[in-house]
Every structure is written in structure tokens, then in C-alpha cells.
Computed example of a mutant assay.
Amino acid sequence: MFEANRGAAPQLDGAGLVIGIVQARFNAGITQALAQGCLQELAALGVAAADITHVQVPGALEAPLALHALAATGRFDALVALGCVIRGETYHFELVANESGAGVSRVSLDHGLPIANAIITTEDEAQAIARLDKGREAARVAVEMARLLQKVRA
């Protein structure tokens, strides 16, 4: 039976986990830095390079469909969504930010699969640069949530 470990340290041993990463190419300088941080952190947590699938999509709106396709394979313990949406002069920012976020959540809940959402939404490029650690954080979230669900389902 599953027991909550109140106050226990997160389980961050990534050995043996299979992780998928979906990276949006739009704002490529930012998203590439997010991906690099994510990949470095996954390696530091013990996830083998051979157990990581890294795909790219045009932008944040396309990320949920790619996440869905990966989730549908049943091969992954967790997924990571990486992207960057910077506010412009039109309503398009809200559309992309809201719909990509809702899509990521829907895929996660529909498949019962943890997805670390690091599609960052910012007012400007400086804020995006200040949030580049979100790639590393997403790696940690993916591993922690994969381990938590394994424990809950055992």
C-alpha cells in the first residue's frame, strides 16, 4: 500500500527511466538553451542518453500533439515540454500561452503520464533569459514525478 512520505526528499534517481522531450524551435536561442540544461540535468540524475528521445516542433502550439504521440506509445516514464512564448503586440501571445499550457495538461491527464511543462511565457527576451534554469528544473520534475507515480502504482 502506498504511504505518503511527508517531508521526504524527492526521489531524483533517473537510472532506468525513459524520458521524452518535445522542444519548440520558435525563439530557438532560448529553447536550445532550455534543452541543453534539461539534457545536462537528466544526465546528472542518471538518465542514460539512450533512454532520452528528443524531438523538435515548430512552436509551442505544436508541442501538445507531439507529446500526445509520444505518450500514446506507452514507452515513456515522463515527458518534458520546452518552449518560449514572448509577448508581442497582439492577442496571439495569450492564445499560444493558454492553449499550449492547456494542451500539455490535457495530454498528461489523458495518458496518466507526468509532463514537466517548461514552455516559458514572458513579457520580453530578458525575462526569458532569466528563466533558462527552467530546463534543468523540468528535468528534475520529470524524474521526481515518474518515481512518484511508480511508487503510487506499485
Rank of each mutant, 00 (worst) to 15 (best):
A28H: 11
L42G: 02
T73F: 04
K151E: 15
L132K: 04
L132M: 10
V104N: 05
H111M: 10
I19L: 06
A78D: 03
D51T: 00
C84W: 10
A15H: 14
A69T: 13
G46T: 01
A128T: 12
G14F: 02
A60F: 06
H68W: 11
Q127Y: 01
I119G: 04
A130L: 02
T121F: 02
L61M: 10
A28V: 04
I19V: 15
V57W: 06
R147N: 15
A118F: 06
A72K: 14
F2E: 04
F2R: 08
L17V: 02
V104T: 05
I52R: 15
G37Y: 01
G16L: 02
D110T: 12
L113P: 09
E62A: 15
G88D: 10
R131C: 06
V85K: 09
L149D: 03
V18M: 02
L65I: 14
L39S: 10
C38P: 03
I120K: 09
I129V: 15
H54W: 15
E41F: 01
H54C: 12
V152A: 13
V22Y: 06
D110K: 09
R140Y: 06
R75I: 02
A71T: 12
R147Q: 14
Q11I: 00
A60G: 13
I52D: 04
I120H: 08
L17S: 01
V104A: 04
E89L: 12
E99S: 09
I119Q: 04
E99P: 00
Q127I: 03
